[in-house]
C-alpha cells in the first residue's frame, strides 16, 4: 500500500507502523464519573467497519508523524490522509 503523507507525499506503507481505530485519539476524561466505563469502551470496543475506516498510522521510518488515514477495509483504497495532531485539535484535544 501507498500512503499519501500530507507533508512528504506518497510513501510505502512499509515505512509506517499501524495502531488502529482513530477513535483512540478520543481518550476519555479520567475524572469523569463514568471514567471506568468510558475507558473500557475506549480501549476495547471497536466499530470495525467493512468499508471506510479512520485509523492511525505512525511514520516510524520517516518523519515520525502520526497520521489519520481514511481507508476502505474492503478495497484498501485510501480516501484521505491527515496529520493526527490536526485531527486531535479539531476534536478538541488540548493540553
Amino acid at each position: 500500500m501507498i500512503i499519501n503523507h500530507p507533508i512528504l507525499g506518497p510513501r510505502d506503507a512499509q515505512e509506517f507502523t499501524y495502531l488502529g481505530d482513530a477513535a483512540l485519539i478520543d481518550r476519555p476524561d479520567w475524572q469523569a464519573d463514568n471514567a471506568a466505563e468510558a475507558f473500557h469502551d475506549y480501549l476495547y470496543l471497536r466499530d470495525n467497519p467493512a468499508g471506510e475506516h479512520r485509523e492511525l498510522w505512525f511514520h516510524e521510518q520517516g518523519d515520525r508523524s502520526w497520521l489519520v488515514v481514511t481507508r476502505n477495509t474492503v478495497t484498501h483504497d485510501i480516501l484521505n490522509v491527515e496529520l493526527a495532531r490536526d485531527v486531535a485539535r479539531a476534536r478538541g484535544r488540548r493540553k
Partner: peptide, 19 residues
C-alpha cells in the same frame, strides 16, 4: 526503545497536542 518512543509521540501528537 522503539515502542516507548512511538507511544510518546502518540501522546504528544494525538492525546495532548498542545503541550
Amino acid at each position: 526503545a522503539v515502542l516507548v518512543y512511538r507511544n510518546m509521540e502518540f501522546a504528544r501528537q494525538c492525546l495532548w497536542p498542545d503541550l
